[in-house]
Design a protein around this nucleic acid. Sequence first.
DNA 1: TGATTTTGTAACCGATCGGTGTCATATTGG
DNA 2: CCAATATGACACCGATCGGTTACAAAATCA
Lengths: 94, 94
Amino acid sequence: MLLRTPIDLGSAIRDRRRALHLDQNELASQVGVSRKWIIDAEKGKSRAEIGLLLRTLDVLGLRLSLDAGGPIAGQNMVPTVDIDAVLDRARGQP
Amino acid sequence: MLLRTPIDLGSAIRDRRRALHLDQNELASQVGVSRKWIIDAEKGKSRAEIGLLLRTLDVLGLRLSLDAGGPIAGQNMVPTVDIDAVLDRARGQP
DNA sequence: TGATTTTGTAACCGATCGGTGTCATATTGG
DNA sequence: CCAATATGACACCGATCGGTTACAAAATCA
């Protein structure tokens, strides 16, 4: 699943918690946070701490992976060329 | 790349920022945060807000994906069986 | 249906956030 | 070498965090 917003993350947490048949209290105590925090996180709180979120995903058996946005769906097309190398080569041949 | 800790995330942010030849000020203004925040985030601050982090990854053209931990490296082996279905079936045959 | 469990909301609190500004220390370029 | 740029660290501030407690609403189940 692709994560774009905190709401995506919250939904994933809630779905996974339910799939594992855990209530908010169980999850909270396993993660080491209050039930209030779980509620907010599942609502997609944008100011939630990354550390607590990572611990939550770990407890839920969810893995986060990071990679450069592909050219297909990428709204951030980034060239792979090494600009410095290109310039250095250009300067070497005046 | 696999993300386990906020430090992993911070390193990825720094590496990507440098690969794009952005300084901390450039990145900060594009993300809409202070340079102080970029410094802390790259250091792997565990209490950084998820919302700002997601915006940062977006600016850097990095994508986050989430999936259930596989059985190979998984320290959280979770059975796929639907316990409720199993129990319902058991009750159906007394 | 009634009883139990689960979930949502609110107020209060100390702790910590992120922004701003400044200065010192690398690091880079000529 | 010096100058310019980039990075790190610090103090100060208002805003907001997450924890706690309590109560109400909703969902679940016999």
